[in-house]
């Protein structure tokens, strides 16, 4: 019994996604533990983003069950919920592989839009807000404070009133994470957060993700290509290849899994044993 099976924030059971004849994800089962950074890795076209789109409701899975469990024990069946409810009620937030900010809106506005649900309720669905009731003004102030906190956290407070499209690439990535965090998520899904970042930005990102895990009640699930990022910060790694899970465990265990090495280096099935042997030799050398 591993840590993530004891208290999972997300349970994926028998997830299958077919597009016509193409099976993008085939009978995938895994758990993401509460308070963990779980990484979903795999070669190009392995079906990682499809899994994300199923979890966050952008696709309806062909088969399978996706359960989000909050710290207070409430559970949500994600495959039955519309996409906006997955973020609003089940508290599963996400970012996108190709950054999707509101470019013509300021950084602060971006983070205010992320707090739409609570603000909407406080403004009595716009009607109370139109007349400027006190509860809405208080909620708005609280929302601004939260936005300010996250802008400060990602180092963009000085640019709060600039349009988001004016930011450099790395800052846009951080802003997107801050925006997702403003929804107050239990689980934050990051689709290739380190893609296109230089080593310094990448290190800053790692720090931000570790901070979120440490200080916030948010668990992380991330897709990543860059193995160094994965190995450095994640607690649990799930490896996909051709839509099938080929490995699942602690980063160390996964790193040495011959199937993973085969998938990444492209080895035939009958050569796996030889690769396994090679890996052992390399390890012995490293140990020496």
């Amino acid at each position: 019994m591993t840590r993530w099976t004891k208290d999972p924030v997300l349970t994926v059971e028998h997830l299958t996604m077919r597009f016509g004849g193409l099976v993008a994800v085939n009978d995938l089962t895994f758990q993401a533990g509460r308070g963990d950074i779980t990484a979903l890795i795999g070669p190009n076209g392995a079906g990682k983003t499809t899994v994300f789109n199923c979890i966050t409701g952008f696709y309806k899975p062909t088969e399978g069950r996706l359960t989000a469990r909050h710290a207070d024990g409430r559970t949500y069946l994600l495959e039955r919920m519309p996409d906006h409810a997955i973020s609003g009620e089940a508290k599963v937030a996400r970012t996108f592989q190709n950054i999707r900010l509101f470019g013509g809106m300021t950084l602060l506005e971006n983070l205010m839009v992320a707090q739409h649900g609570p603000l909407m309720r406080a403004s009595l669905f716009g009607i109370g807000g139109l007349f400027g009731i006190g509860s809405y003004r208080r909620a708005e102030r609280a929302a601004i404070d939260k936005a300010r906190y996250w802008l400060d956290r990602v180092g963009l407070l000085a640019r709060a009133d600039d349009p988001a499209a004016d930011l450099p690439y790395g800052a846009q990535r951080r802003l997107e994470i801050a925006r997702a965090m403003c929804t107050g998520p239990e689980l934050l899904c990051l689709d290739e957060p380190a893609a296109g970042l230089n080593p310094r930005e990448s290190a800053e990102l790692n720090e931000l993700l570790l901070y979120i895990r440490r200080e916030q009640a948010t668990s992380l699930l991330l897709i990543e290509h860059d193995m160094s990022v994965v190995m450095e910060i994640s607690d649990h790694v799930v490896v996909l290849d051709y839509g099938v899970k080929i490995s699942d465990g602690e980063p160390e265990a996964v790193r040495n899994d011959p199937k993973v090495i085969a998938a990444y280096l492209g080895v035939d099935d009958d050569e796996v044993e030889a690769v396994e042997h090679e890996v052992e030799e390399v390890e012995r050398e490293v140990a020496r």
Binding site: H84, F96, R100, M105, V113, H116, L130
Partner: peptide, 27 residues
């Protein structure tokens, strides 16, 4: 006035990027 309310901001966000809106819990 409505522009400064969450519903107005959601309209403008919708114009900017509908998919991002859905990921932020906006119906």
């Amino acid at each position: 006035r409505v522009r400064r309310l969450p519903v107005g901001r959601a309209w403008e966000a919708l114009r900017e990027d509908e998919i991002a809106c859905r990921s932020l819990g906006i119906n």
